[in-house]
């Protein structure tokens, strides 16, 4: 029997009414056509997804576009999503791979883009870091970003990028080494 003042029968309901709706519940509502649920999902997951895209692309306009496109494509076909699985890694998988596609395509034309430096106002909170990240090969950059910007572990990164765990480790090591040397060089 509970001690004084507690209302065990009502407490879960009270907590339920106050708690945030889970991603799975919101996805169910989006499936039913709720624009408000879509807005809540965007609000909840925009920041990290946008940061991942920006860190991979080093271009704020493209990062915004890629993040928006990824969210639209995911939420428009949300019926395929297995709600037993977490939503955010799925979103990041789409964002990271889409950003990586852009970055690879741009790397093929790197001579052009290396000449066009982004203005400092467009380089975010750490312009030198953005520049150093942009100097990494896209595949290496994606691993570094997913590990230290998005905070994923080796297994999740391997799943997101569809590569082996060993490859994640080696790309991460080389990426960090290269990043450090780039920054040491630019910091003087």
């Amino acid at each position: 029997m509970p001690e004084s003042g507690e209302l065990p029968a009502l407490a879960p309901a009270v907590r339920g009414s106050r708690r945030e709706r889970s991603d799975a519940e919101l996805i169910g509502a989006v499936r039913a056509g709720s624009a408000a649920a879509a807005e809540t999902l965007v609000d909840r997951h925009w920041d990290r997804a946008h940061r991942v895209a920006f860190a991979i692309l080093a271009d704020p306009h493209l990062a915004e576009e890629v993040t928006q496109e990824s969210m639209v494509s995911i939420l428009a076909r949300v019926g395929r999503f297995d709600t037993r699985r977490p939503f955010e890694p799925w979103l990041h998988r789409v964002v990271a791979n889409r950003a990586l596609d852009y970055a690879r395509a741009r790397a093929r034309r790197s001579q052009v883009h290396r000449l066009v430096a982004a203005p400092a106002s467009e380089s975010g909170s750490d312009p030198r870091l953005v520049e150093a990240l942009a100097a990494l090969p896209p595949d290496r950059r994606a691993v570094v970003v997913l590990r230290h910007v998005a905070g994923y572990g080796t297994n999740e990164i391997a799943r997101i990028l569809g590569i082996r765990r060993g490859t994640v480790g080696s790309r991460l090591r080389r990426g960090l080494d290269q990043l450090r040397s780039e920054l040491e060089e630019s910091d003087g």
Partner: peptide, 30 residues
């Protein structure tokens, strides 16, 4: 230090980008 800087990285005008997304994404999904 490097990892700390990576963790703190933010895109420029992140709040503006977020508000644009909140306005556009649900409408485009619908």
């Amino acid at each position: 230090t490097l990892i700390g800087r990576l963790g703190a990285l933010r895109p420029p005008d992140a709040e503006l980008a977020r508000s644009r997304a909140l306005e556009r994404v649900p409408a485009r999904v619908a």
